[in-house]
Structure formats: structure tokens, C-alpha cells
């Protein structure tokens, strides 16, 4: 028995959510943990995955796998799962991980549970707790099949950081043309910013920011905290900010330790995207804004005055 972890890279770095997946795989206590890395990164980063709980890293630097094509990745993950004789596959929820895991589950005949928020209960069957109704409830589900695939939600486990270096080995994979029916022609990516789904602190702005020209206030605060920036749906609909920053029911669901909402009234659709945050701070000039009811800390005040002061106070603390 062993555990396989599907690891995702972002700009050559292992994503933080994948490190959580490795620590989760280790904490399962179901045998050796193998991390599968597809794409190009350096060897040191791979041996370093040992720290988080992987004993072995298998990688492929096949240029065809540099981009995340769902079928191709699914085919590789299923092959490696069998190769290492795994019983559980762990992945972190992402726009790539979700469809890849779904394909793999059919290939392997495995039970699949995603949005899992804690370690399984195994005294009576294999039961995991998953977040449902967009963060408004949980379901405990039994994974019936011998082979299991677990997709974890951010913060499902705290990172283990005390393991020894992992062994690193290149893995041979059979790829067929069938797996490459989808062709990626180009991409558009903001460089150097902290990825919103991965961020531990998120600063979001809403219509109360009055226009995209005022976003430097949000960005400055985010920078002082090492945070990612997000926005409400109207802001993304009006093209003040790109869609990948939209947090809410139909945008990204985030689960940071700290979510700071500025000039966002707190429509139920927005709350659905942030209700898994540990701590929520709301800054709004309208004392009646519904968001205050969902917040841990609130300030009633003009964002254009409060936010720069807050940025300065954070800087003073960190200097």
C-alpha cells in the first residue's frame, strides 16, 4: 500500500496547496508517500518535498507535459498510481486538479471525494468530511472502493515541515496522441503576483472603491501583508479587474487565514466565496452593510482614508 500525491507547479515552483496535499498524504499513514511532479522544476525543489512528508518524488520533464492538458495528465497519473501500487491519490483542489482527478477516478474505478476539509475517519469504513453548499455545510461521505482519490480544500491540514530529503527519480510514461486532442495555443498570465487561490491573506475591493484607478490602495495594503488581491463580481463585470480575481459564488471560492473586504457590501453571492476564511475584516462606510454580520472585525469608515492608514500601521508593525 502507498499514497500518491499529484503535485502542481506554478512558474517552476511547487504550489503551496500541493505541499499541503503531500503533508495530508503523509498524515494518512497508509504507507510510502510518492509525489508526482509533471513539468520542469529543479532537482533541489523536488528533494525538498521530503520535508513535507514525501519519501519519493517521481517526475517527468517531457516537454509535452509542461502544460496541463487534462487527458494527458489523467493518463499519466493513472499509470503512476498503478506503478507505485498506490491505494490513495491525494490532490489539492484547483482548476486543473479537479478535472484530472475526475478522469483518473473513472480510469481506476476509484471513489473520489473533493473539497475534503480534514483527515479521514477510518474506525468504521473510510469516511471523509467535505465542504458542500459552497461552504455553508459539510457532508461526511464513505469512500466505498478500494482505490480512493481525495481532493483537499486549502487548510485541510497544517504543513508538516520536518521530513528528510526525498529520493528523486524520472518516471517513464506512455503517452498516446489520443491524450493530446486539446492544443494549448497561448496563455495570458499576470506575472509576479501572489496566486489568489493559494494566498493566506486576501485583500478584496468592491464597488466602494469607485473605479480601477483607485486600486493602488488595495494593492498597497496587499503588498504590506504579502497578500493576493481579489474583487467582487460587479468589479469584475465592469472590467475594473480581471475575472481571475473575482471572489464569490460564481468566481473563486477562497479560504485564506485572513480576508479583508473593502467597499464590498456583502451580497450573499460574495459571502459564498469567502465563508471558509478563518478571519474576516470588513471596511465599509455604510454601517448597515450586510457584510459586517459575517465579519470578525469591522471598521465603519471611508476606505480612501482608512485603507492608507491601515497600510501604514501594518508596515510599522512589520518593520
Amino acid at each position: 500500500m502507498s499514497v500518491l500525491v499529484f503535485v502542481e507547479l506554478a512558474a517552476g515552483e511547487v504550489k503551496g496547496s500541493s505541499l499541503e496535499a503531500i503533508s495530508y498524504g503523509h498524515a494518512l499513514g497508509l504507507g510510502e508517500v510518492t509525489a508526482l511532479v509533471l513539468g520542469i522544476t529543479d532537482e533541489r525543489k523536488m528533494t525538498g518535498l521530503g520535508k513535507y512528508g514525501a519519501q519519493k518524488v517521481l517526475y517527468s520533464d517531457d516537454p509535452k507535459l509542461e502544460k496541463g492538458i487534462i487527458q494527458a495528465y489523467a493518463s499519466v497519473v493513472a499509470q503512476v498510481f498503478d506503478k507505485v501500487n498506490a491505494s490513495v491519490l491525494v490532490f489539492a483542489k484547483s482548476s486543473l486538479g479537479d478535472p484530472v482527478a475526475a478522469n483518473v477516478s473513472v480510469k481506476l474505478g476509484a471513489s473520489l471525494a473533493s473539497n475534503v476539509v480534514e483527515l479521514p475517519e477510518t474506525r468504521n469504513g473510510f469516511v471523509v468530511k467535505r465542504s458542500i453548499y459552497t461552504g455553508k455545510a459539510f457532508a461526511e461521505v464513505e469512500m466505498q472502493e478500494d482505490k480512493k482519490i481525495i481532493g483537499i480544500k486549502k487548510n485541510a491540514i497544517s504543513l508538516k515541515e520536518d521530513g528528510a530529503d526525498a529520493s528523486v527519480e524520472k518516471v517513464e510514461i506512455d503517452l498516446s496522441d489520443e491524450d493530446f486532442q486539446v492544443q494549448i495555443t497561448s496563455e495570458e498570465k499576470a506575472s509576479g503576483e501572489i496566486l489568489l487561490p493559494e494566498a493566506d491573506v486576501v485583500v478584496s475591493g468592491g464597488r466602494g472603491m469607485k473605479g480601477p484607478e483607485n486600486w493602488h490602495l488595495i494593492e498597497d495594503l496587499a503588498k504590506s501583508l504579502g497578500a493576493a488581491t481579489g474583487c467582487s463580481k460587479p468589479v469584475s463585470d465592469m472590467d475594473w479587474r480581471p475575472h481571475h480575481e473575482h471572489v464569490g459564488q460564481t468566481g473563486l471560492k477562497v479560504a485564506p487565514s485572513l480576508y479583508i473586504a473593502i467597499g464590498i457590501s456583502g451580497a450573499i453571492q460574495h459571502l459564498a466565496g469567502v465563508n471558509s476564511s478563518k478571519v474576516i475584516v470588513v471596511i465599509n462606510k455604510d454601517a448597515e452593510a450586510p457584510f459586517f454580520k459575517a465579519a470578525d472585525y469591522g471598521i465603519v469608515g471611508d476606505a480612501f482614508e482608512v485603507v492608507p492608514k491601515l497600510t501604514e500601521a501594518i508596515k510599522a508593525l512589520t518593520n
Binding site: A10, K15, K67, G68, S94, S95, L96, Q181, V182, Q183, I184, T185, S186, E187, E188, K189, A190, E193, L195, L196, P197, E198, P242, H243, H244
Partner: peptide
């Protein structure tokens, strides 16, 4: 297709 921090353009039959 939406990806972390942006989008990816692709073609498929």
C-alpha cells in the same frame, strides 16, 4: 480556460 492568475487559450475539435 481559466488558470491560476490568468487564462489559457486552446483549440479542440
Amino acid at each position: 480556460r481559466e488558470i491560476d492568475g490568468g487564462k489559457e487559450f486552446l483549440e479542440v475539435n
